[in-house]
Structure formats: structure tokens, C-alpha cells
Computed example of a mutant assay.
Amino acid sequence: MPRVLIADDEESMRTLVARAIAMDGHTIVTAEDGAEALEILTSDAGAFDLLLTDIQMPVMDGIALALTAARDFPDLTILLMTGFADQRERASGLNALVHDVVTKPFSVADIRTAVADALASRKRD
């Protein structure tokens, strides 16, 4: 059963995404920002299959989180989310580290498909 860490500063988005992904049987852990997500990753020695993080967050944004997570946990698959075009452009330079960027708003089906695709890519690597 894949473990997914979700980092998003918007509680309603965190809850929606967690519920959507849990429908597929994944174990979900959530964080309110990148710093909390990094603490969770570190305390669990990176024992997650997927990091799903918003880009724009206080304390530590998703780009800084993705860079640190990719450096410290190179086997971790990373999926970014954003509702801002300029943030998507910032993420375009991370193609080697990040599986994909999901654009908000998205449907439950969209995020479930994106997560399934990201997790399936782990098996192909």
C-alpha cells in the first residue's frame, strides 16, 4: 500500500486531496507547509512513495521542499500542484526531479489519475 505525503497550506485542499487519494487505498499523511512536510520525511527516513506538494506555501514553499526532498531522498517520487501560471513556470526547471505539475483547480478524478501515474512511474524506473 503506497504511502503519500501531502503538503498544502489550504486545509480544504489538503482534505479533498487526502480523501480522493485514500479512495485508492493509499496511506495518507498530511502537512500544513513544506517545513512540516520535511520534518515528517526526515523523521520517517523518507519512507514515502510519493510527495504531493503545493508550490505556493508559507514557511517553505513546494519548490524548496522538492529540491531538498530530491537531494535527501532520491527514490521519492514528487508531484507538484499549483493554481498559478508563474509557479508552474518556476517548476519547469525541475523536470529531472519532479514527475509532473498538476494545475489547480482539478477534479477528484484528475488528482487520482495524476497520483496513479506518478506511482506507476516508480515501478517502471
Rank of each mutant, 00 (worst) to 15 (best):
D9G: 05
F48A: 03
F48V: 04
K104L: 11
F48T: 01
A114R: 07
K104T: 07
I63W: 04
S121Y: 06
A70C: 09
E32V: 13
E32C: 12
S43H: 11
E11Y: 13
S92D: 12
I55A: 07
L97W: 06
L76W: 09
I63F: 09
L79Y: 02
R19K: 14
A37N: 07
L97G: 01
I78G: 01
R112S: 01
I28S: 03
R3I: 06
T30E: 14
Q56H: 13
R122D: 05
L65G: 02
M23K: 15
T53R: 03
L50F: 08
A85M: 13
V101D: 00
V102N: 00
T53I: 05
P74V: 09
M60A: 03
L38D: 01
P58R: 05
S92P: 05
I28W: 06
D8K: 00
A96F: 09
T30N: 08
T103D: 14
F106D: 02
V59L: 10
H99N: 02
D117E: 13
E36K: 14
A45N: 15
V59W: 06
T30W: 08
L50S: 01
V98Y: 00
A116D: 10
R71P: 05
S121W: 04
A31C: 08
D86I: 12
F73N: 01
M23I: 10
P2H: 04
V108W: 02
G34C: 05
A64P: 10
E32A: 14
V4P: 05
L65H: 02
D86H: 13
M57C: 07
A118R: 02
D117P: 01
L51V: 09
Q56R: 15
A109W: 08
E36L: 12
V102T: 07
A96S: 14
T27C: 11
E32S: 14
L79P: 02
A37S: 08
A35N: 10
P105D: 03
M57I: 07
P74H: 08
A116V: 05
D24H: 11
A45W: 11
D24L: 10
D86W: 12
Q87D: 15
V115T: 07
R124W: 07
S12L: 15
F48R: 01
A37H: 05
P105H: 03
D8T: 02
S92Y: 08
D54A: 06
A64N: 11
A47R: 15
K104W: 11
E32N: 11
M13I: 15
V102G: 00
A66P: 04
M81R: 00
R90S: 11
P58H: 03
S12V: 15
L16C: 11
K123Y: 10
T77A: 15
S43K: 13
T113H: 14
G83L: 09
T42W: 07
L65Y: 05
R90F: 07
L94Q: 01
D75W: 11
D72T: 12
I111D: 01
M23R: 15
I78N: 00
F84W: 13
A66H: 00
M81Y: 00
H26P: 07
L16H: 08
L67A: 09
P2T: 04
V102Q: 00
